[in-house]
């Protein structure tokens, strides 16, 4: 099954804690199992998104960086 993104959060340019806050708000609009893509430029996001997923129990499916843009794919628990 292709990975279908149900929610997208563009947090590019935003500083801590807004990428995480926006993600937490968007995840509420999703149902269990759906995927979300988050784009951010905050250099702390790699660790922050891993920590957020660990604490909230949502799954970090993908974590990558390209040209200063961090991309995360998360699956709602």
């Amino acid at each position: 099954m292709p990975l279908e993104i149900a929610q997208r959060v563009d947090a590019k340019g935003l500083s801590c804690p807004m990428p995480i806050v926006k993600t937490a708000q968007a995840v509420k609009l999703m149902v269990s199992g759906q995927l979300m893509e988050v784009l951010a430029t905050d250099a702390g996001s790699t660790k922050d998104f891993a920590a957020w997923c660990k604490t909230t129990g949502n799954e970090l499916v993908e974590s990558s960086v390209e040209g200063g843009v961090y991309r995360f794919v998360l699956r709602r628990k």
């Binding site: 801590c16 993600t23 909230t56």
Partner: peptide
């Protein structure tokens, strides 16, 4: 910052 982040993390 800590209050909003805490809430975002489900606490």
């Amino acid at each position: 910052i800590l209050a909003t982040t805490g809430a975002a993390m489900g606490a």
